[in-house]
Design a protein around this nucleic acid. Structure first.
Lengths: 200, 200
DNA sequence: TACGTAAACTGACTGGGCTCAATAATGAGT
DNA sequence: ACTCATTATTGAGCCCAGTCAGTTTACGTA
């Protein structure tokens, strides 16, 4: 056992460093060219690792996108959560959660839609996928918390309503019909739908 | 020009016959093994056509599934529509539309989820895809018609509510979390969500 | 019947995601 | 320092959806 302050062996450090290189390479290439126009070979080359190695760190190309994007969505959620606390109106507060996530999703439309696709249709037992699902869960909890804040009419189910909001967001962001909408139009569209859910 | 009662030339007849063979072959193989476990080669072989020919009739494997399934969903919608007319309660009537579609989708879970994936993420300019979108549109119209039937509280937007019902259906059927649910459990889950949308 | 051409068909081929048998690195035990 | 089992790495190659240059077929026209 080395006396250094590093509690990690060379093995762990190498692995971490490799994961970092992969994340950086994928992040850069995806942002520049879009997921669909980047090959896993290019990512492996840029990260300076073998083809097979890449798939030890992310079992599919989709997982690779989740690995790269999850952190951004988690940030967006955190910002929205903080913002929402300062807003009294329920609908406005919910939209404060929604907006940053839509913005994050729309930085690059194709990547955003691919991310959503992977979330719903990818393998939920993969690690990056379950992180993504957990972010969705936290988003729904944050929305439910807002709805609970105002004690609304007797039998109002905050958690269930939050699930519906989540479904509305997903379909609105993913639908090819909406692929042409800019962020503002999309947010407005989502707001209109959610307004039907929240009694005033 | 031939004098026969057939208004179609050999060319048109050949094309139709080939399309029929493709539809039959794909239908059978998909039902038996699941979309994911059938190769386009197998379909081409079974339909007794060349590899390339297959893709003249459906540009992608996904389009092939839409080709095969669209008719079933259209049937399901029609059955639900007829059924709904006899039901006075709005929520029950909406569920009469929903149920046959869920049943159709769950005949084979993987194929059902693949169909939904193709609907949202496939190329909307392809012919079978736009048929699928049109079925969704008709479903939303049918639901909106039910909601309009009962003239509910002043500013109740039937069309927008129908869109939300559609989103709820989609996410509930597609979500991997629900992949284990049987038809009854899934229908109940969807009903619970929709009940929050329709004031009584 | 023969010709021209447009439409339909074909299968060898390509590109790319992913696998796996072989190899190398690591570090615990001696 | 020297095993040696365990874990990490690797790239040639597999599989399969989808393409395209070349061929065949249908059919109007002479």
């Amino acid at each position: 056992m080395p006396v250094t302050s590093q509690p990690l062996g060379r093995r762990e450090r190498n692995k971490q460093e490799k994961l970092d290189r992969i994340t950086a390479a994928a992040s850069e290439l995806f942002a520049k060219y879009g997921v669909q126009d980047v090959t896993t070979q290019q990512i492996a080359d840029k990260a300076d690792i073998g083809t097979g190695t890449l798939f030890l760190y992310a079992k599919t190309k989709g997982e690779l996108l989740l690995l790269v994007q999850n952190a951004h969505y988690a940030d967006a959620l955190e910002r929205g959560r903080a913002d929402a606390e300062t807003i009294p109106d329920a609908l406005d507060a919910v939209m404060a959660i929604v907006r940053p996530i839509v913005e994050c999703n729309r930085i690059q439309i194709d990547n955003g839609r691919f991310y959503l696709r992977e979330m719903v249709f990818g393998d939920p037992t993969e690690p990056h996928h379950s992180v993504a699902l957990s972010i969705v869960g936290q988003t729904e909890e944050a929305i439910a918390a807002i709805l609970d804040r105002k004690e609304l009419a007797g039998e109002f189910h905050a958690a269930m309503t939050a699930r519906i909001v989540s479904a509305i967001m997903f379909v609105s962001m993913a639908a090819s019909v909406n692929a042409g909408l800019d962020i503002e139009a999309l947010v407005t569209d989502i707001r209109t739908q959610i307004s039907l859910l929240i009694p005033r």
